[in-house]
Amino acid sequence: MDYRRTYRSAAIAFADLVSRIPPAALDGPGLGEWTLRELLGHTVSSALRQVPTVLADRAPTLLVPAPEAYFALARLAPADLVAAARKASTDDARATGATLGDDPADAVSGYIGKATAALAGVGDDDLVATPAGGMRVADWLPTRTFELVVHASDAAVAAGLPIAFDHDTLASTAALAARTAVAVGQGVPILRALTGRAPLPTSFSVV
């Protein structure tokens, strides 16, 4: 699958959703402790705004060899580091959400334009410095597509609106989730759940 095309497709689906969210819903429930506005802020920050910055920052060494390894590393981080990262993420979600104003669709479109322009200027095998370490562009960008698809679906549920992703975008995201499950030692539970053998535990997650 073309990782560049699936990223753009996910971004377009997210932008379309945001354009349909009523302003009155923005400060209602989003995800967990986040409002919908804050959820949109997190999605923009994690999947759009940082893309030009990361793509412009070259890494000297490949440290993370696959998209699933990126997410698996987060599971291995010390608890205090994870807690600090979550707090920072929440603070950033609130700050970014506030900057989106009452018409977040316009801001989201601007971020998508900058991200896709930056993507056009890099090669698949270029090494970039990500929070987890040096990665190939072709391996890092699917983690941003994952963020877009998962959080766009969160926002759609929160807003009570439909959202649709094309086949390749949804397939690649689901496949990455399954590969991450294997990477963190949860491959068998995922396989058994997907084949109707056993349910997953409450609050099960691979990320």
Rank of each mutant, 00 (worst) to 15 (best):
M1L: 14
D2S: 15
R4W: 07
T6P: 01
A10E: 03
A10P: 00
I12W: 04
I12S: 14
I12H: 10
I12T: 14
A15K: 09
D16K: 05
V18G: 11
S19Y: 04
S19V: 07
R20T: 15
R20I: 08
R20A: 15
P22A: 11
P23G: 10
A24T: 12
L26Y: 05
G28N: 06
P29D: 12
G32N: 12
G32E: 13
E33A: 14
R37N: 10
E38T: 02
L39K: 13
L39V: 14
S45Q: 13
S46P: 01
A47N: 12
L48T: 10
R49G: 05
Q50D: 11
P52F: 06
P52L: 09
T53G: 12
T53L: 14
L55E: 11
L55Q: 11
A56S: 15
R58F: 01
R58V: 06
A59P: 01
L62W: 10
A66Y: 02
P67G: 13
P67F: 03
Y70Q: 07
F71K: 01
R75M: 13
L76A: 15
A77Y: 00
P78G: 11
A79Y: 10
A79H: 13
D80H: 08
A84K: 01
A84Q: 04
R86A: 12
K87R: 14
A88F: 11
A93F: 04
T96V: 14
T96G: 01
T99L: 03
L100P: 01
D102Y: 05
D102I: 08
D103G: 01
A105S: 15
A105Y: 01
D106G: 07
A107N: 04
A107H: 07
I112W: 00
I112R: 04
A117S: 06
G121H: 07
G121A: 15
G121M: 06
D124M: 00
D125A: 12
D126G: 04
L127D: 12
T130Y: 07
T130P: 03
P131S: 09
P131L: 08
A132W: 03
A132R: 13
G133Q: 08
G134L: 10
M135E: 14
R136A: 13
A138N: 05
L141W: 00
P142H: 13
T143E: 08
T143I: 09
T145E: 03
L148G: 12
V149D: 00
V149G: 02
H151P: 06
H151I: 09
A152W: 01
A152V: 04
D154A: 11
V157I: 12
A159E: 07
I163R: 09
A164T: 14
F165L: 04
D166W: 05
D168T: 08
L170S: 07
L170K: 04
A171D: 02
S172D: 09
T173V: 06
A175K: 02
L176M: 14
A178S: 03
R179V: 00
T180Y: 02
V182G: 01
A183V: 04
A183H: 02
Q186Y: 08
V188I: 15
P189M: 09
I190H: 00
R192Y: 06
A193M: 08
L194W: 05
T195K: 05
T195N: 08
T195S: 13
R197H: 10
P199T: 13
P201Y: 07
T202I: 06
T202C: 03
S203H: 13
S205W: 00
